[in-house]
Amino acid sequence: MVSLACLTGLALTLNSPMAEAQTAAKEIFGRTPLPSVNPAEVHGFYSKGCISGAVAMPTDGPTWQAMRLERNRRWGHPNLIALVQKLSRDAVSDGWPGLLVGDISQPRGGPMLTGHASHQVGLDADIWLTKMPNRKLTRQERRDTSAISVLKNDTLYVDPNIWTPAHGKLIARAARFDEVERLFVHPGIKKALCETYGSSPQNASWLGKVRPYYGHHYHFHIRMKCPQGSTECRKQDAVPAGSGCDASLDWWFTKEPWTPKPPPKDAKPVKKRVVTLSDLPNSCSAVLREPQPANEQLVTFDASYDPTAALASASPSSAPAAKSAGIGFDWPIPGSRPY
Score class of each variant (00 low, 15 high):
T8L: 11
T8I: 04
G9V: 01
P17V: 06
A19H: 09
A21G: 03
T23W: 07
A24N: 07
P35N: 10
N38V: 10
P39A: 14
V42W: 03
A54S: 15
M57Y: 07
T59H: 14
M67T: 02
L69F: 03
E70T: 06
H77N: 08
V84E: 14
G95Y: 11
G98M: 03
V101K: 12
D103W: 07
S105M: 13
R108F: 05
R108C: 12
G109H: 05
M112K: 12
H119Y: 05
Q120W: 00
G122A: 09
L123N: 04
D126Y: 00
D126T: 00
W128N: 08
L137K: 01
R143W: 00
D144F: 04
A147G: 12
P160L: 05
K169T: 13
L170D: 04
R176S: 14
E181R: 06
V185N: 06
K191E: 14
L193P: 03
L193I: 04
S205N: 11
W206H: 01
K209H: 07
V210S: 07
M224V: 08
T231A: 15
K235A: 15
F253I: 11
P264K: 11
K265T: 12
K265H: 13
K272I: 00
L277K: 02
S283G: 14
S285G: 15
N295Y: 09
E296V: 04
S304N: 15
A314N: 11
A319L: 08
S324R: 01
D330C: 08
D330K: 04
P334M: 09
G335T: 02
R337D: 15
